[in-house]
Design a protein around this nucleic acid. Structure first.
Lengths: 345, 345
DNA sequence: TCACCACGTCGAAGATGGTCACCATGGGTG
DNA sequence: CACCCATGGTGACCATCTTCGACGTGGTGA
C-alpha cells in the first residue's frame, strides 16, 4: 500500500505539504505543488479513505436515497442518480446508494456513523418520515421534491405547476376547447406525491384562465384501466379534442385506443404528454411533450449540498434554498390546430 | 457524537467487548450481549465509519460501477443496482455508486484508497479495460456479464444462449417454420456486448436443430429503422410468421407496423420478445416474452462478492465462479399456433 | 546596513474512534 | 494440582489531517 510517507520521501517535502497540496487547504508554491503532484501520480498514491475520513471528520461521501416503488418512472430516477454521481465527483465526492427499504433508520445509520457527510433524498413525500430523522442528526440534507415543512434543508424540484400550465396553454393556443387530463393511479396521489397534485393544479388554473372546459381522471396505466378511463371521458364529454397524459404507462394504451376507436392523432385529437423527451420520441406519431431538465435536477441538488457542506464547515448556518426548474414544451406530431371546430360560431 | 466509550460506560464492559458484540467476531455470553445491545440501542450508537474502516482495514463498502450509455435498457440496470444494494445491506455492506465516466481510473481510485472492499462491474465488455486495473490492485471483483478472460474474478450473467433457444423452441412448437430475429443496433454488437451475440447464437443453434428457416437483422429501435428492417424482412422472406425481438425499443414500432400492414398478432404473426415481464405486459396484446431473473443477477453477484471477501480475509484464495442464470418463457397473447399453414402438405 | 515583515515550508505532536492479537481471570475437570 | 475452556480486558496499531511554533529567504523602509 502506498502511503503519504512514500510521497514525502519521493518528493522530498513534509507530509503536511502533501496534505495541503492534495486538499487545497493552504497556498503552496507552484513549484512544490508540481513536484508533489508528480510524485503522487508516479507512485499512484490515493489517500486512504478511512484515515482521511477519521482525521478530517468528513467522509467526502454523499448518500443518495432511492425509492423502491415500482410504477415510479424508473429511468428518470436513474438519470438523476447518474447526474448526482457525476456532479458529486466533480466536487471530489463519492455517492453512496441507499435504498428506502431501511426507512428512516437507513438515513439515521448513514448520518450517525459519519458514513456520509450529507443526504440527498429522492421521491420525497409530503410528510416524509425521514426528514425528522435527518433533523435530529443535524445532517445536511437536500430533497428532490417538496415536503410540507422544508425548514432546515434545501429542496429542488421541477416546476410541475408550470408544466401543467404549459399543456393547457399549448392546447388552448391550438384552438382546443375541451380537454381531458389523464393522471396517475390513485395510489400515487395517496402517497402524497406532491408533483402529481401540483401538475394538476397548474393545469386547472391555466385551463380556467384560458376558458377551457376540462376534466381530470386518475388512471392506473394498464391497458384495461386506460380503456375504462377513456370510455368514461368520451361518455362524459364527447366533444373532448385535447388530451393531457401524465401517467407515462397510459400513453401507449391511449394511443392505440384512440386509433382503434377511429380517431386519428393529431387530426381528430391532440395529445400532450408529460414525460421525458426520450420517451416522447419513441411513439408514432412522436408526442408533443412537456418535460423538465432531469439531469439538471441532480446537478442542482449536489451543488446545493456542496454549498451547505462548505457553509457548515465554516461554522456558518447553511442557507435553505428552494429552486424550481422550468419545464419546456417541445411540439411534435401529436398536436395540431383544431381544423374542424366542433362549435362553429 | 456517541462513541464506543459512551457504550462502554453505559454497559459497564470494555470496548473490545462492545466491538465483538457488534461485529459478531467472537462468542460473548448472552447476558453481556444483551446488556451491550440495550446500551447501544438506548444511546443510539453507530460505530464511526472512518474509524472502523481504518482499524479494521476494510470499509464494508462495495463499489458498483454503472454504465452511462443511453439506449441500454436502463430499468434493468436500475433493478440490478437496487437488488445489489438491498442484498449488500443484508450482509452489512453499503454500496458506492461509481459511474463509468472516470473509466478505469475510477475503479483504481476506489480500490487503492480502500474506499471499497470490492468492485462489482455491470455492462462488461469482452475486453474490458477496467479488468486489468482491478487485477493490478488485487481487488476482489465480480462481473455482471462475461469478458474474454475472467481469470481471477467471478462472473454472473443470464444464460442468453438459453434465452435465444427458448424463443426458437417456442415458435417451433407452435408450428412456425420461418422466423425473423430482430436484434440490437450495430453499435451494441460493436461494443462487444457478449449478450447480444450469445442470444443470437443460442437462437440460431436451436432454430437449426428444429429445422426452422430464419433470418437475423440488426435494428436501431427507432420507428424508422424498425420500419426499414421489417420491410427488408418481408421482402426477403414473405412467408415469415414468427418474430423474435431482442431490442426492446423496437417492440412498439414493430407492433404498430405489423398492425398497420394488415397482419394481426397473433393470428397472422407471432411475436416473442426478449424483455422483462413488466415491459411485456404493457403492450396490447401482452407479449409472450423470455426474460432472465434480473434481481437474481444482483443478488448472486453480491453473494459471490461476500464469499470472495470472507475467503480473502481468511487468507484463502477466493474461488472464481461463473454461474449462468436460467431464463424463462412466459406465454401471453402475442404468440399462437400457426392456424392456416402456408404450406399444406 | 539593519531591523522587520510576509511568504512558504518544515517538523512534530496530538487527535480521530475502532479493531484485534494477545493476555488475564476464574471456575470446572481429570 | 495442572490444565483447559469460556469470557472479557488491555493496549498497540490503523494512516491521515490539523495545528502551531519555528525557520529560511528575499524584499522593504528607515
Amino acid at each position: 500500500m502506498v502511503t503519504i510517507f512514500d510521497v514525502v520521501r519521493h518528493a522530498g517535502v513534509s507530509s503536511s505539504t502533501v496534505s495541503y497540496v492534495l486538499n487545497g487547504t493552504r497556498r503552496i508554491s507552484e513549484a512544490t505543488r508540481g513536484r508533489v503532484l508528480r510524485s503522487v501520480a508516479e507512485l499512484g498514491f490515493h489517500p486512504n479513505a478511512g484515515a482521511r475520513t477519521l482525521a478530517g471528520r468528513r467522509s467526502h461521501i454523499i448518500a443518495l436515497v432511492m425509492p423502491l416503488h415500482r410504477g415510479v418512472y424508473v429511468p428518470i430516477m436513474t438519470e438523476i442518480a447518474i447526474s448526482v454521481t457525476t456532479t458529486a465527483r466533480r466536487h471530489g465526492y463519492d455517492v453512496l446508494l441507499v435504498t428506502n427499504d431501511e426507512g428512516p433508520e437507513g438515513v439515521r445509520r448513514v448520518a450517525a456513523s459519519g458514513l456520509a457527510d450529507g443526504v440527498i433524498l429522492m421521491d420525497v413525500e409530503l410528510d416524509d418520515q425521514r426528514i425528522p430523522a435527518l433533523r435530529a442528526q443535524g445532517t445536511q440534507a437536500v430533497l428532490i421534491g417538496l415536503p410540507d415543512d422544508p425548514h432546515g434543508l434545501s429542496c429542488v424540484d421541477h416546476d410541475f405547476a408550470a408544466a401543467g400550465a404549459l399543456c393547457a396553454e399549448h392546447l388552448a393556443d391550438l384552438g382546443h376547447r375541451e380537454i381531458a387530463f389523464i393522471g396517475y393511479g390513485s395510489g400515487v396521489y395517496q402517497r402524497h406525491a406532491g408533483y402529481a397534485e401540483r401538475t394538476l393544479t397548474g393545469f386547472r388554473e391555466r385551463a380556467g384562465q384560458r376558458g377551457l372546459r376540462f376534466l381530470d381522471r386518475p388512471c392506473e396505466g394498464t391497458y384495461e384501466s386506460t380503456a375504462g378511463t377513456l370510455a368514461r371521458i368520451v361518455a362524459d364529454r364527447p366533444r373532448t379534442t385535447g388530451f393531457v397524459v401524465q401517467n407515462e404507462a397510459a400513453i401507449g394504451p391511449l394511443l392505440s385506443l384512440l386509433h382503434s376507436s377511429g380517431r386519428s392523432v393529431p387530426e381528430d385529437a391532440s395529445v400532450v404528454a408529460l414525460c421525458p423527451e426520450q420517451l416522447a420520441e419513441q411513439y408514432a406519431p412522436a408526442l408533443t411533450a412537456v418535460s423538465g431538465p432531469t439531469r439538471e435536477l441532480g446537478r442542482v441538488a449536489v451543488d446545493q449540498m456542496i454549498r451547505r457542506l462548505t457553509d457548515a464547515r465554516r461554522g456558518a448556518q447553511p442557507e435553505d434554498e428552494r429552486p424550481l426548474l422550468t419545464p419546456t414544451l417541445t411540439p411534435r406530431q401529436s398536436t395540431a390546430r383544431l381544423s374542424v371546430p366542433k362549435e362553429p360560431s
